[in-house]
């Protein structure tokens, strides 16, 4: 089971994005990194079919995504947005309900998803009253509950405290074990490298490099995509990168 992105091109506010070429097998994590405005979020929205493509295609388990009905597509793909826009009062429970729109899900599964994200006690809370980090966990719980085969996450670590970042990486590893394929747009390159099997490096809408994490994560590539000088060092948890401003 594979999600394949082939020669996928888009146009977003004058920025030409692509061609994107990559494949994600189930049970794998792919991270997309690059500067702000390099087309990371747009790429996710393009794969979801929310932004129109110019050319190319997304193939999910052998089926062209653009030919799939919304309901079937949502069984394959879910999206964790950078921010969940909730303009009028909805409770955490309401939001979880929405996630199960296209499948028959049990209350138990909902509780499991909430428990996984450690937000069971917030079930009845109005979403608007939650903190940034809590909102983030709700949107991750909602994607878990949607139970699609592939999950696209836009900056899942933003707004999160250190302990929640740890929780997030545990959740991601767990989802991976359950056979989910995950694409993450990430800001923190070291976190991205530590959780990902593969990396896609982007700059100004173009792919700079793509491959297995430790084949593409190097000082040269980091310097290229962020226009800064990088150094690396070996830590007990693996190689770490840091920028040098001088």
């Amino acid at each position: 089971m594979t999600l394949e992105v082939n020669d996928f091109c888009m146009n977003r506010g004058g920025l030409k994005i692509g061609p994107l070429n990559f494949r994600l097998d189930e049970g794998r994590i792919l991270s997309i990194i690059g500067k702000n405005g390099s087309g990371k979020t747009s790429s996710l929205l393009g794969i979801m079919g929310i932004i129109e493509k110019v050319s190319g295609n997304v193939n999910i388990d052998g089926i062209d995504a653009s030919s799939m009905h919304a309901r079937d597509l949502s069984r394959k793909l879910s999206l964790v947005q950078q921010e969940l826009p909730v303009p009028m009062s909805l409770s955490v429970h309401d939001i979880m309900d929405i996630a199960a729109y296209s499948r028959d899900a049990s209350e138990e599964e909902m509780n499991d998803a909430l428990e996984t994200c450690k937000i069971s006690h917030m079930d009845k809370r109005d979403f608007a009253t939650l903190s940034g980090g809590e909102k983030r966990m709700v949107s991750i719980a909602s994607a878990i509950y949607q139970d699609s085969r592939y999950i696209l996450m836009d900056e899942p670590a933003s707004f999160l405290d250190i302990d929640k970042v740890h929780l997030l990486s545990t959740i991601l590893k767990d989802l991976k074990k359950k056979g989910k394929g995950i694409i993450c747009v990430m800001h923190d390159i070291n976190l991205a490298a530590s959780i990902s099997d593969q990396m896609l490096l982007m700059k100004s809408g173009q792919v700079v490099d793509y491959g297995n994490t430790w084949d593409v994560m190097n000082v040269g590539n980091m310097g290229k995509i962020y226009d800064a000088k990088f150094r690396s060092y070996d830590s007990p948890e693996g190689v770490r990168f840091y920028p040098v401003f001088s």
Binding site: M48, R71, R75, S78, L90, I95, S102, Q146
Partner: peptide, 12 residues
């Protein structure tokens, strides 16, 4: 109510 992007992603 949660936006068209979210609505689409849950299968609407």
């Amino acid at each position: 109510q949660m936006g068209e992007a979210h609505a689409k992603s849950v299968g609407i």
